[in-house]
């Protein structure tokens, strides 16, 4: 079903082109380097500030005169519960959210992009509209709902909606990508007697790794950064997520301790960064789809 030969050729052709033009490669590299320095300067500044003593933070030089990890220790224990707990809570919520989003949204997206059914366009429109209502005004009715379900101060209000494809962004994302997978594959499979489930499992999912990886990355980042949901639904400090813990830390007193704020801000990015680096591989695997017989 998959013809991998053109892929290999395509890649080697491109690589070859790059090797033959070292000057162009060098230019691209230096431009990228300059751009990344410019972009990352604020982050480097923050990283460096996290190692500086308090009175040195705003005094010009990017490089600290001496490196100290004190700020990390102070920040880690900046609230009555340590950040370790917050990291664990965030990881659990993010992991469950990824599973939920990938499963539920891909099913929904498959229906919208590949199946014919009465009312498809209507439901698709409804799905888009759900993305457009600012969440601050649905918050209270939703809180009442979850409170009556007895879910407040558990992770359920944050996780269950993910298993019910409540975030239209991911459905829409997958729909767009599913639609660009050639229909011929599906038709061939249907002639072979495959039902929608087989097509979904054996054709769509394997061919959609890039978009699934993208969705996984985004889910992780969105849940990791979200503070409003956890703020409202997780009232016990021991259940706080990293984003909420950081806000509480900064909001309540942390601003008398800038370096600890920067230290925690840096630390909070690390897991998301690692997740990105890890899932990147699947983004690249997407090349496989380019070997499809068209």
């Amino acid at each position: 079903m998959l013809e991998t030969a053109p892929l290999a050729q395509g890649m080697s052709a491109r690589r070859g082109a790059a090797r033959r033009k070292p000057l162009r490669t060098a230019i691209v590299h230096s431009m990228l380097f300059a751009a990344s320095v410019l972009m990352l300067y604020p982050l480097l500044w923050m990283l460096s500030a996290s190692f500086k003593p308090q009175d040195e933070i705003f005094s010009g030089s990017l490089f600290p005169s001496s490196v100290s990890l004190d700020a990390y220790v102070r920040g880690w224990n900046g609230l009555s519960v340590s950040f370790g707990t917050f990291f664990m809570n965030s990881l659990v919520i993010a992991a469950l959210s990824i599973i939920g989003n990938l499963a539920a949204c891909s099913l929904t997206a498959f229906a919208f992009s590949r199946l014919q059914f009465v009312g498809r366009r209507l439901w698709f429109g409804v799905m888009l509209v759900t993305m457009m209502l600012p969440y601050h005004v649905t918050l209270i009715p939703q809180y009442v709902l979850f409170f009556n379900l007895g879910w407040v101060n558990t992770i359920l209000p944050l996780v269950v909606p993910k298993f019910l494809a409540a975030d239209g962004f991911f459905i829409f994302l997958m729909v767009q990508f599913f639609r660009s997978i050639p229909f011929e594959l599906q038709e061939a499979a249907m002639i072979d007697g495959c039902g929608p489930w087989q097509i979904y499992f054996n054709i769509m999912l394997p061919l959609s790794k890039p978009v699934l990886a993208t969705a996984a990355i985004f889910t992780f980042i969105f849940t990791w950064d979200d503070f409003f949901g956890p703020l409202v639904y997780l009232s016990d400090v021991r259940n706080y997520t990293v984003a909420l813990g950081l806000r509480t830390f900064v909001d309540s007193q942390g601003l008398s301790d800038w370096s600890a704020v920067f230290a925690m801000s840096c630390l909070v990015i690390v897991p998301v960064f690692l997740v990105f680096v890890f899932f990147q591989r699947f983004l690249i695997e997407g090349i496989a789809t380019s070997g499809l017989k068209r």
Partner: peptide, 20 residues
């Protein structure tokens, strides 16, 4: 033919009517 579509749509429909 719609049956399959709505089956796939089920989680979303439950979420839509139940939560959203």
């Amino acid at each position: 033919r719609s049956k399959a579509g709505y089956l796939f749509l089920l989680p979303w429909l439950v979420g839509f009517f139940g939560l959203t």
